[in-house]
Amino acid sequence: MATVNIAGVNIPSDKKVPYALMYIYGIGKTRAFFICKSLNIDENSRTKDLSEDQLTNIRNFIDENYKTENDLKREKSGHIISLKSIRCYRGLRHLANLPVRGQRTNSNAETRRKGII
């Protein structure tokens, strides 16, 4: 078993389970450890050592409880589109390709403003 497919992502088989789960977009360190704890999976075990039942339990748990990968990305881009359409301050900053969260633009944000100047 070279790689394991969970939530449409091939996660590496040689890593410990929580760190392998972090390869899935939308699952960070805290969620990965919570998933292992709630499914009684040893956090020090490797992905290649999991049984098919454990892999199925992980897949089902993630599908039922979390939005991951494309669903999360679609929702996130939908929020940005709605900000742009109502023309609020954050939406205007997105439209202008400027920093959204109050950062300086005089001496920083060069990568965000790359194509403007």
Rank of each mutant, 00 (worst) to 15 (best):
T3D: 14
G8I: 10
G8S: 06
V9K: 11
N10P: 04
N10K: 13
I11A: 05
P12G: 07
D14I: 09
D14V: 08
K16D: 08
K16L: 14
K16E: 15
P18F: 03
P18H: 04
A20V: 03
A20L: 05
M22W: 00
M22H: 00
M22T: 15
I24W: 05
I24A: 04
G26D: 06
G26H: 08
I27A: 01
I27S: 01
I27G: 01
K29L: 07
T30C: 02
T30A: 14
T30R: 14
R31D: 03
A32D: 01
A32C: 05
A32I: 03
F34C: 00
I35Y: 03
K37W: 00
L39C: 03
I41P: 03
I41C: 10
N44D: 13
N44H: 13
S45Q: 15
S45M: 12
T47A: 12
K48Y: 14
K48M: 12
L50T: 07
L50G: 02
E52C: 01
E52F: 07
L55N: 06
T56K: 14
T56C: 01
N57V: 01
R59F: 00
R59N: 13
R59Y: 00
N60R: 10
F61M: 07
D63H: 06
D63K: 12
E64T: 13
Y66N: 07
E69R: 04
E69Y: 09
E69V: 13
E69L: 06
N70K: 12
D71W: 00
K73V: 11
R74G: 00
E75R: 04
K76W: 04
I80A: 10
I81V: 09
S82P: 00
L83C: 10
K84C: 10
S85E: 15
S85M: 12
R87F: 07
G91V: 09
H94N: 08
A96K: 12
N97Y: 05
L98I: 14
R101E: 03
Q103R: 06
R104N: 12
T105L: 03
N106K: 15
N106L: 10
S107W: 03
S107F: 10
N108D: 08
A109W: 06
A109P: 08
A109M: 05
E110C: 00
E110P: 00
E110D: 05
E110G: 10
T111K: 14
T111I: 07
T111S: 11
R112Q: 11
R113K: 15
K114I: 08
K114P: 00
I116M: 08
I117E: 06
I117V: 06
